[in-house]
């Protein structure tokens, strides 16, 4: 059964520039999805819609058959959806482990030992203890990306959304991260959605949605997307 459903979703910004048009996607638990497309195809916009950070111009997004627009979207983001942002969006004055703990605290869920869980998660994405205690500001791009991944996983969300999560990672770490995503979906029955332009990522997932670029034309091109 699908946990997240797009019903005829379109998105227009600035009042006239349409980036997404009539999307009908379904995402299920226990699977890893990839959304691919060229730059400007609206991948990040789709991710913002799925995470409840913005609302569709047309259509509905359903989470557990409930319209995301009508539920508490702060609670939705803090408890049910973990997001790995393309720009990581970590708090620079906090350490890596504190950033992870913050999300756990924001979720309002109970965890036995937040510090321990955060350290373990960071260790899983190859950030050792000394790096974990460092302020995010002093970490490299790749290290920050891994903190962002650990943070998205920290509060045990039902859905994991990741925007180019492997963009700054070397091939080995990239594979490790995809392994983690895969285990999450297959062993813990989570729904993982990865937005990427990487063919390697696309090759390692269960299902791929391809976003076609609408370009600058305002013409509506219905049915320009489909399962591959």
């Amino acid at each position: 059964m699908s946990i997240l459903k797009l019903q005829n979703v379109s998105y227009t910004y600035d009042g006239y520039t349409k980036v997404l048009n009539g999307l009908n996607y379904e995402f299920e638990k226990g699977k890893v999805y990839a959304v691919v497309g060229r730059s400007g195809a609206g991948k990040t916009t789709l991710l913002s819609l799925l995470s409840g950070l913005t609302s569709p111009s047309e259509g509905r997004i359903l989470f557990d058959d409930k319209d995301v627009q009508k539920i508490d979207r702060y609670q939705y983001r803090s408890r049910y959806v973990g997001v790995v942002f393309q720009q990581y969006n970590l708090l620079p004055h906090l350490s890596a482990v504190e950033n992870v703990e913050l999300s756990m605290r924001a979720s309002g869920k109970k965890f036995k030992d937040k510090r321990k869980r955060a350290t373990e998660l960071l260790d899983e994405v190859d950030l050792d203890d000394s790096l974990a205690k460092r302020r995010v500001l002093k970490l490299s791009g790749g290290e920050q990306q891994r903190v962002a991944i650990a943070r998205a996983l920290s509060f045990d969300p039902d859905i994991l959304l990741a925007d180019e999560p492997t963009g700054n990672l070397d091939l080995a770490t990239q594979e490790e991260v995809m392994d983690i995503f895969s285990r999450l979906a297959h062993e813990k029955d989570k729904c993982v959605i990865v937005v990427s332009h990487s063919p390697e990522v696309a090759a390692s997932v269960d299902e791929v949605y391809e976003l076609a670029s609408l370009g600058k034309s305002k013409k509506q091109r219905a049915g320009n997307e489909g399962k591959r």
Partner: peptide
Amino acid sequence: YEVGVLTAIGIK
């Protein structure tokens, strides 16, 4: 930016 991050991770 801090406001943006905090609200993005679901803090009201």
